[in-house]
């Protein structure tokens, strides 16, 4: 190409109108024009800036990454620093040991906290807390949704990206997904901090807030969040207990014929459909069942 400088200036938008006019009559321009102009019509695929930032922020807020301090330039300082770090890390891990629990899609987990308080963690959610200092500071970080049943004691705090919930002893559900923040109080009372405002929820009151809308407090009736009671899961549990759970869940009576009640069952059943639940238990154990009368079921082995 003869007009190297002109071409480069052209692409960098540096040609004056006169220079451009001169350049336009060259062969180089004629040949490169379609290439250069059409290339500008291409675009890279879409990039969702906000969604990506939220993901990033979740990772950062959960302490999975920590910003590091810089440590001077000199070797002896570095060595000293390493020692400090080793000691500090030891202390840090001793005092600051993080317990982290997360759930995947369609997975619900029941957890007991050191003081007998319990949490049901809904799917796609994460919590973390520090068991070593649980006695003096009951604080939990939550991403997603969870139901808390809190034993009486000192302050119990749930921190989320959207807001904070503080209680003394009660049962409540917190959902903090994206910028949606909702809190349902099932027993006792909870205090919700959202932005710079605070809301006190009494029993059977719920708080709904997002960044853009006006927050509100509503009444509700359910005993426990629907999502938390949808499934019972067992791991190597005697059939006797599984049957008791079935009876309780569906308000039925189950009798058995020729069935070993001590055999172990691993699996789960859904609370939404009794037939499905009965199959979930009987099929893996190669049992049959019949409905004898309303709410009376017989399990038997063939």
């Amino acid at each position: 190409m003869e007009n190297r400088d002109q071409i480069l200036k052209w692409l960098n938008g540096e040609l004056t109108p006169e220079e451009l006019a001169d350049f336009k009559i060259t062969k180089d321009y004629q040949q490169l024009k379609p290439i250069v102009e059409n290339s500008s019509h291409f675009e890279a695929p879409a990039f969702d800036e906000d969604a990506n930032y939220r993901k990033l922020k979740e990772i950062m807020d959960n302490g999975e990454v920590e910003s590091k301090e810089s440590f001077g330039r000199f070797m002896y300082l570095k060595i000293a620093a390493v020692l400090v770090v080793v000691l500090a890390t030891g202390m840090f891990f001793f005092l600051n040991k993080q317990e982290r629990i997360s759930t995947g899609t369609a997975e619900i987990t029941l957890l007991d906290l050191p003081d007998e308080s319990s949490i049901i963690l809904n799917s796609d959610s994460r919590i973390s807390y520090q068991p070593e200092i649980w006695g003096s500071e009951r604080t939990i970080k939550l991403v997603g949704e969870a139901f808390f049943k809190v034993e009486t004691g000192g302050d119990f705090t749930v921190k989320t990206e959207n807001g904070k919930v503080k209680v003394v002893g009660t049962a409540f559900n917190v959902r903090s997904r994206n910028d949606e923040f909702r809190v349902w109080c099932y027993e006792g009372a909870v205090k919700v901090s959202f932005g710079d405002k605070e809301f006190l929820l009494k029993e059977r009151q719920a708080f709904f807030g997002t960044q853009d809308t006006i927050s509100k407090v509503l009444k509700f009736n359910e005993e426990i969040p629907v999502w938390a009671i949808q499934e019972s899961t067992f791991e190597a549990v005697p059939l006797r207990e599984v049957i008791r759970e079935l009876e309780e869940q569906f308000d039925i009576e189950i009798s058995t014929k020729n069935v070993n009640l001590e055999q172990l069952f691993t699996g789960s059943f859904s609370h939404s459909d009794m037939e499905l639940a009965l199959k979930a238990v009987t099929v893996p154990l190669q049992l049959q069942y019949v409905t004898e009368a309303d709410k009376k079921i017989v399990l038997y082995e063939e």
Partner: peptide, 22 residues
């Protein structure tokens, strides 16, 4: 590959955050 590109973006910003004071 746009998925890979997003991952690079994510990872790079995490590195920035890790070293933010420096």
């Amino acid at each position: 590959n746009s998925e890979q590109a997003s991952d690079y973006v994510q990872e790079s910003f995490i590195r920035i955050f890790e070293n933010c004071s420096k």
